[in-house]
């Protein structure tokens, strides 16, 4: 039991060949790419909204969010739906993999800059075998200066 408590279950996804993770308990579902209705006058990384089983859910493009190069969506592109406290939101990622257990001991604080992603968005880095998995700080990802779209 104690061993489990020290482990973090997370869903791993890929973004520009790097691996990221979000806690599994926040993940509602993983959807295939589908039609997204653009919402005008919102931040560029807000791709729009989809109908997720009757709930209109906003979708963010994480590549855009992290200012990476945009690439065409492929068959492996997925939308990870997260259930947050006040709302649901979906992230478009290059691919989503399995659930892994991360030992808390394996998590190190984030270095200043990792690849192209500002360290702000990263809570820590977990090293498992030879994989380097970055743990997303969801608050930061969602917040940013400018999700306030009122103009």
């Amino acid at each position: 039991m104690t061993e489990q408590a020290e482990k973090l279950k997370a869903i791993v996804f890929e973004l520009e060949t790097k691996e990221y993770a979000v806690p599994v308990e926040l993940v509602g579902s993983i959807e295939r790419m589908q039609h997204i209705t653009r919402v005008p006058k919102t931040k560029d990384f807000v791709k729009g909204v989809i109908n997720l089983r009757g709930v209109v859910t906003p979708i963010l493009d994480l590549r855009k969010r992290f200012k990476m190069n945009e690439e065409a969506y492929t068959d492996s592109t997925r939308i990870i739906i997260l259930h947050l406290e006040n709302f649901d939101v979906g992230f478009i990622v290059d691919a989503a993999y399995d659930v892994i257990d991360i030992d808390n001991e394996a998590i190190e604080p984030a270095p200043k800059v990792i690849g192209t992603v500002d360290a702000d968005y990263i809570d820590g880095v977990a090293k498992i075998d030879k994989r380097l998995i970055m743990l997303l700080n969801l608050d930061k990802v969602l917040q940013s200066e400018g999700v306030e779209i009122n103009n």
């Binding site: 919402v39 005008p40 919102t42 209109v56 906003p58 779209i149 009122n150 103009n151």
Partner: peptide, 16 residues
């Protein structure tokens, strides 16, 4: 339907 709390008020859009 509401656009949800995340998007909040969007100009000239009252919902979805």
């Amino acid at each position: 339907k509401s656009l949800g709390d995340y998007l909040g008020n969007v100009f000239a859009i009252s919902g979805a």
